[in-house]
Amino acid sequence: MTNTQNTMKTGYAAKRQAANIAIYIILTVMVIVWLFPIVWLILRSFSADGAYNAIFPSNWTFDNYIRLFNDYDAAGNPISQEDMPFPYGTWILNTFIVAVCSAVVSTLIILMISYAFSRLRFKSRKALLNCGLILGMFPGFMSMAATYSIMEIFGLKQSLVGLVIVYSAGAGLGYQVSKGFFDTIPRSLDEAAKIDGATRNQIFWVIILPLSKPIIVYTALTTFLSPWADYIFVSYFMKANKENWTVAVGLYNMLDNEHIGRYFTVFCAGAVLIAIPITILFIIMQRFYVAGVTGGAVKG
């Protein structure tokens, strides 16, 4: 009896071990598949040959990174800063300015909207929430041409200020995650403060905001990250105004048929440079990300 039990147990353990080994193999294969493009990008960025169909560099070099900031032409003559076909430094600066400004303004706007919808009760609340939901379902760039005309009327077309305004104005619709967060703060806090004579304005600044650090960090980081990855709107909005391009548009243009031969590895270097800080930020905020996406749902 005990004997059969033992064999059953070892049989079960063996089966589980086999399952685990299979999982290790699957995971390893998957990690290789998933990391391959990224490793390839890094390898290519250190390559002295400009080939885009090789894997390992024939010669290693830092040249591609240097060329992002001090370019030279095919004959090896240095190109002055004004004439650089791909002013990467300017683009980084542009994107950084736009990202910081729109992160500050958008975060404020999102916090204001989500606090109002989450903690305050007023007559038009339901109707406004529905309107927000419906506006969010129109494809974002359907009205790109109209936005461009409006910016033209304000004298802000092809400008960084215009870009910040468009990003911040659009951010108003992304309030769901932080509203979900505000919903989880117990309402008894508000009630207690109200009894003590605090106005809703004071409750917002003194009680709710200090409790909301995680969601402020999350909102600021997501709004900071989005201009780094936006290509469609910027490419339409800035057109050929290269001085005001952001990194995404600039890098995309390095790969057109005319330039890919000389600039492919430079593109890799540029992509690696911006990917490093963004990856670090993303890994820092991943736990907020999960809470953000599911936070509203857990409560049902």
């Binding site: 109002a116 790109m144 109209a146 305004i165 104005a169 304005n201 917002f204």
Partner: peptide, 21 residues
């Protein structure tokens, strides 16, 4: 207070999202 909080975002949304749509 909701009027104060929502007025600026609403105006921005009206001009740069609702109007274009």
């Amino acid at each position: 207070f909701h009027v104060t909080l929502l007025s600026i975002p609403t105006v921005l949304l009206l001009i740069f999202t609702v109007l274009p749509i």
